[in-house]
């Protein structure tokens, strides 16, 4: 997955990402929260990309990004 994020006012926000050969524009971020796995911390962004709701996760240790959940928005 490739991603473009914006650092602004001390915060990081995903803006666009490419997954499975498609580009997704993040229209809004309804929820940001932190997950823990052992001592490892992840910053999670629930993002609304119009046609899809996804959860993008940033590993706070190595700053890698992953997409861990996605669902069509018509549910």
């Amino acid at each position: 997955m490739e991603i473009v994020v914006r650092f602004s006012q001390g915060k990081v926000k995903p803006e666009t990402f490419w997954w499975n050969g498609r580009e997704y524009q993040v229209e809004r971020i309804p929820l940001i929260f932190e997950r823990k796995d052992g001592g490892r911390k992840y910053l999670c962004f629930s993002v609304d990309c119009g046609g899809m709701i996804a959860e993008l996760v940033m590993d706070k240790e190595d700053l890698t990004w992953r997409l861990i959940k996605c669902a069509p928005s018509y549910t």
Binding site: R28, P30, L31, S46, D48, I53, S73, Y74, T75
Partner: peptide, 10 residues
């Protein structure tokens, strides 16, 4: 409600 917050379509 937390799931509805994360996914506005719910």
């Amino acid at each position: 409600t937390a799931e509805q917050q994360a996914n506005p379509y719910l």
